[in-house]
């Protein structure tokens, strides 16, 4: 065994011994390479997922368990949900979760509807000023959000919407990038079906609703997921626009929890798990849309 692992070319003995594992091109993968790969994969796994598990473990440790022990204890000796109860007693965490959910749900609906409509107008409808309309969205996409955040805040004040959940949702409720993503999706559809519908007398709304929209469900799902994740995870904007603790979203509530009870690690850990669990569940169910969104957002956006 050790001979095959050390011999540098290792071609003949290792392949002879290798299980029938082949890569996507039908070539055998050598055993030592496989071992090395899995070792590296497990190492990176510990680095990326480990911190979440440690946080989960901390949140489950009871008040009498030493969370500072050295060497550290990875598993809670006596797992308890006590800390989650305490978070709810300390801050209105479920209200915050509900606020986050409202903001995220609203963001999903407005982004899906708004960007599908605008995307369709940019891709399919003919009217004067369409180039200008497209340019508006491209320019908006290029403006870094952080550099206009103070002006957005004063705009919200002028509208009397600061310190409201509506104010949290509004600036991103129809993302320019989502509009352009939908536009690209509509452009990639073949014209023929819509033409046939047009000949049959379908108007723009009917063509949009019955023919074009059902064909871009995939992109729409990507927009929905990223709208949800973006709203649920957002920090800087709600931090600026919300000042009343009863209207906090989860991220702002967590920041408040951390600022006020920083030395109660079990409490903060339980709060973070509450905030992250829904998204991890969502991700586990809808992975391929998450990955697709990264590709489309980065390359086409």
């Amino acid at each position: 065994m050790s001979v095959t692992e050390k011999a540098p070319p290792a071609e003949t003995p290792a392949t002879a011994r290798a299980p029938r594992l082949r890569d996507e091109h039908g070539r055998r993968i050598r055993v030592w390479e496989l071992v090395l790969r899995y070792a590296l994969l497990l190492g990176v796994l510990a680095l990326t997922v480990g911190p979440f598990l440690w946080q989960l473990s901390t949140s489950l440790k009871g008040p009498h368990e030493d969370i500072f022990s050295s060497p550290p204890r990875f598993l809670p000796g006596d797992p308890t949900l006590h800390n989650y109860q305490r978070v709810a007693d300390t801050i209105p965490v479920w209200d915050y979760a509900l606020n986050s959910l409202k903001v995220a749900a609203a963001n999903v609906v407005t982004n899906c509807v708004g960007s599908a409509l605008a995307g369709y107008a940019l891709a399919r409808l003919r009217y004067r000023g369409r180039r200008l309309a497209t340019l508006v969205f491209v320019l908006a996409m290029l403006v870094p959000a952080e550099s206009i955040i103070i002006a957005q805040f004063t705009t919200m004040r002028e509208l009397g919407l600061n310190n409201t959940l509506i104010g949290v949702v509004l600036p991103g409720c129809i993302g320019a990038m989502n509009v352009l993503l939908m536009r690209n999706a509509f452009l990639n559809l073949p014209y023929e079906i819509e033409e046939a519908a047009f000949v049959d007398g379908a108007n723009a709304w009917q063509r949009f609703l019955r023919i074009a929209l059902p064909s871009v469900k995939g992109t729409l799902a990507v927009v929905a997921i990223f709208a949800f994740m973006g709203a649920w995870d957002d920090f800087l904007w709600p931090l600026i626009v919300l000042s009343d603790p009863s209207k906090f979203t989860l991220t702002i509530g967590l920041n408040y929890l951390h600022g006020t009870f920083a030395n109660d690690e079990r409490l903060v850990a339980a709060g973070t798990i509450i905030a992250v669990a829904p998204l991890i569940a969502l991700f586990a169910c809808l992975q391929r849309y998450f990955f697709r969104g990264v590709g489309e957002g980065a390359v086409k956006g």
Binding site: A118, A140, I148, T154, T155, A176
Partner: peptide
Amino acid sequence: FAAPGILVVGVFILYP
């Protein structure tokens, strides 16, 4: 079709 998007982007991105 395009109005909601242009309105939002105009008021909350380009105007700021």
